[in-house]
């Protein structure tokens, strides 16, 4: 009887313990989400608020004291250059992604397979390019762009952004190439394919996840870039989102707060969704690149 009691007691204790752990996990997760998303939640409320409601200090900022309105989103979409910024960002992002893939795919393959010790050293060299970031280069680069007569053209960004995306993409793809067994291409070559044929027919389809990761990465990196875009392009017709929104939607001292927050949110949500879809791939690519093969 005593032993039985002890067992039920132990069980109950385990159950309480388990429940406490669950509460702890949920509490921590909700706190983390609130801390991370707080300014975005505030932005989401702001973008639908009417000005007389928004600009009263005593009003509850998280509540619609006046009915919500779409007025400011309409203003953002139709009376500002926001959609032009979006278009510019997409054009630059696509062009940069294509250049990045064309240059980093062969380089990553050569590094992973063809050049033994030098492959590793070059891999480290690629990493060191990160120690010369845009912040170090934007002033001389502005002279280069001026001399090439690309100031005020999207080509300036298309030309320069691959310097940011190529190193990291090569590093990422190298990890994916290392994850594919060598036998595969050797078999394809035995079957009569050339080295290049084996690469395009047998290996490329297998590293498709890596290519997708690079596309997402190159695109978002060029959408994020601020300092080159701020330095090269002064005309609003050729601004990207990252620079256009903070410089154009603020007129002198007048902030179009609802439109500004709407712009931030309309960009933030789709990008975060996209990243969420590919996060696991990104993680696996990152660890594969980091683990020595």
């Amino acid at each position: 009887m005593d032993a039985l009691d002890n067992i039920t007691l132990a069980r109950r204790r385990a159950r309480t313990r388990h429940r406490m752990v669950r509460i702890g996990v949920y509490g921590a997760a909700i706190t983390a989400a609130l801390l991370a998303a707080f300014p975005f939640l505030w932005a989401a409320v702001t973008m639908f608020k009417q000005s007389p409601d928004l600009y009263v200090k005593a009003n509850n900022p998280f509540w619609f004291n006046d009915p919500p309105t779409l007025k400011h989103i309409k203003l953002l979409l139709f009376d500002t250059n926001f959609l032009t910024f979006v278009r510019n960002t997409v054009v630059v992002g696509l062009a940069v992604t294509i250049i990045t893939l064309l240059l980093s795919l062969p380089a990553a393959y050569a590094l992973a397979r063809l050049i033994g010790v030098w492959g590793e050293r070059m891999g480290i060299a690629i990493f060191f390019v990160y120690l010369i970031p845009p912040t170090l280069l934007f002033i001389p680069m502005s002279r280069v762009i001026a001399n090439l007569d690309l100031q005020g053209s999207l080509w300036s960004l298309i030309l320069v952004y691959p310097t940011i995306t190529i190193p990291i993409s090569t590093w990422l793809l190298m990890g994916f190439f290392k994850g594919i067994p060598r036998d595969l291409e050797e078999q394809a070559m035995v079957d009569g394919y050339s080295r290049v044929g084996a690469l395009t027919r047998a290996v490329l389809p297998l590293i498709f996840p890596g290519i997708v990761a690079v596309i997402v990465f190159a695109f978002t990196l060029s959408a994020h870039e601020f300092i080159y875009a701020l330095t090269f392009n002064k005309a609003s017709a050729v601004k990207t989102i990252a620079v256009g929104v903070p410089t154009e939607l603020v007129r002198g001292d007048v902030f179009f707060w609802q439109a500004l927050q709407g712009a931030a949110l309309l960009v933030a949500v789709p990008v975060a969704l996209l990243f969420n879809l590919f996060l696991d791939r990104f993680i696996s690519g990152f660890t594969m690149g980091a683990v020595k093969g």
Binding site: A29, A36, H224, I241, Q261, A263, L265, V271, A272, F275
Partner: peptide, 23 residues
């Protein structure tokens, strides 16, 4: 939760800063 937690990193920095400027 993962979506919300990643927002600060995936949003272009200047736009994230705009939300803080208002916050």
């Amino acid at each position: 939760v993962r979506f919300l937690v990643l927002l600060p990193w995936t949003t272009p920095v200047s736009l994230a800063a705009i939300t803080w400027l208002w916050t």
